[in-house]
C-alpha cells in the first residue's frame, strides 16, 4: 500500500503545488476560520488523487497488480488522514509560535478546538469518500458540494462558539479531554463505517 501512497503524493506534489501552498498558508494564518478551510481542503486531497487516477485509468492497471481492494481504499483514507493531521499540526505549531512571539497566552479551548477541527476533517473525509468510490469523482461532486458546505458552516459555527464553549466547560466543570474524546470516538466510528462501506463498494467494481 505504501506504493499507492507514494504514487498519490508524487502526483499531488507535481500537479497541486499551488493548492498545497494554499493549505499551508491557511494553516498558519491566525484564527480558526482559516485553519478550518485548510483542514477542509486537506480532506479533499484524496478526491483530487482519485480524479487523477480516473483520468489515467490507474485503477485498471492497479487491479492487475498485487493490490487488494482494501489497499486501494485504505490508501486514500490514509492520504486524507495524514493531510488533515498535517494541517492541524501545522496550525497548532503556527499558533504556538505566534503566541510565543507576541508573548500572549493560548486562546481558551485551543487544543480542544484543534481536536474538533481534526475530527471535522475526518468526518468530512469519511462522508465523501464512499460517494466518490461509488459514483466517481465527476458525479460524486454533488455530495462534495453538500458536505463541504455543511462542514464549512459547522466549522465557522464551532469557531464562533469556541470561547463560549470553553467558558461553559469551565463553569460546568466538564473535562475538555472528555469532550474531545467523545467527538474523537464519534469520528472514529464514522471513519470505520465509511472505510467498510468503501471497501465493499470497491470490491464490487469491475475494471
Amino acid at each position: 500500500m505504501t506504493g499507492l501512497l507514494v504514487k498519490d503524493c508524487l502526483t499531488l506534489v507535481k500537479q497541486m503545488k499551488i493548492f498545497l501552498v494554499i493549505i499551508i498558508v491557511f494553516s498558519i494564518v491566525p484564527g480558526y476560520n482559516m485553519s478550518a478551510f485548510a483542514i477542509v481542503y486537506s480532506a479533499l486531497l484524496p478526491m483530487t488523487a482519485l480524479a487523477y487516477d480516473e483520468r489515467s485509468k490507474w485503477d485498471m492497471l492497479a487491479s492487475m497488480m498485487p493490490y487488494r481492494p482494501r489497499d486501494m481504499v485504505l490508501s486514500k483514507y490514509l492520504l486524507g488522514i495524514c493531510a488533515v493531521l498535517a494541517a492541524v499540526i501545522l496550525s497548532c505549531v503556527a499558533q504556538t509560535v505566534i503566541n510565543a512571539v507576541r508573548h500572549t497566552a493560548a486562546e481558551p479551548g485551543f487544543i480542544a478546538g484543534s481536536a474538533v477541527m481534526f475530527c471535522a476533517g475526518l468526518i468530512t473525509l469519511s462522508l465523501l469518500l464512499p460517494f466518490m468510490f461509488r459514483f466517481g469523482v465527476e458525479k460524486g461532486r454533488i455530495a462534495l458540494f453538500v458536505i463541504v458546505g455543511l462542514a464549512a458552516v459547522a466549522a465557522v459555527f464551532l469557531s464562533g462558539k469556541s470561547e463560549d464553549a470553553a467558558s461553559f466547560y469551565a463553569s460546568e466543570s466538564i473535562s475538555l479531554s472528555a469532550v474531545a474524546g467523545v467527538i474523537g470516538a464519534a469520528a472514529a466510528v464514522i471513519l470505520i463505517v465509511s472505510v467498510l462501506i468503501s471497501v465493499r463498494i470497491y470490491s464490487r467494481k469491475e475494471f
Binding site: 505504501t2 506504493g3 499507492l4 507514494v6 504514487k7 508524487l10 502526483t11 507535481k14 500537479q15 487523477y52 487516477d53 483520468r55 489515467s56 485509468k57 490507474w58 485498471m60 492497471l61 492487475m64 497488480m65 498485487p66 493490490y67
Partner: peptide, 26 residues
C-alpha cells in the same frame, strides 16, 4: 501484466514509476 495502454499517472516519470513499483512488488 501489460495492457493495451500503459495507464500510469501522466505526471510521473520513469524514475517515479520505479519509486512506486519498488513498494508494490516484493
Amino acid at each position: 501484466v501489460v495492457l493495451d495502454e500503459a495507464y500510469f499517472p501522466e505526471v510521473l516519470s520513469a524514475k517515479n514509476v520505479n519509486s512506486v513499483m519498488k513498494r508494490t512488488y516484493r
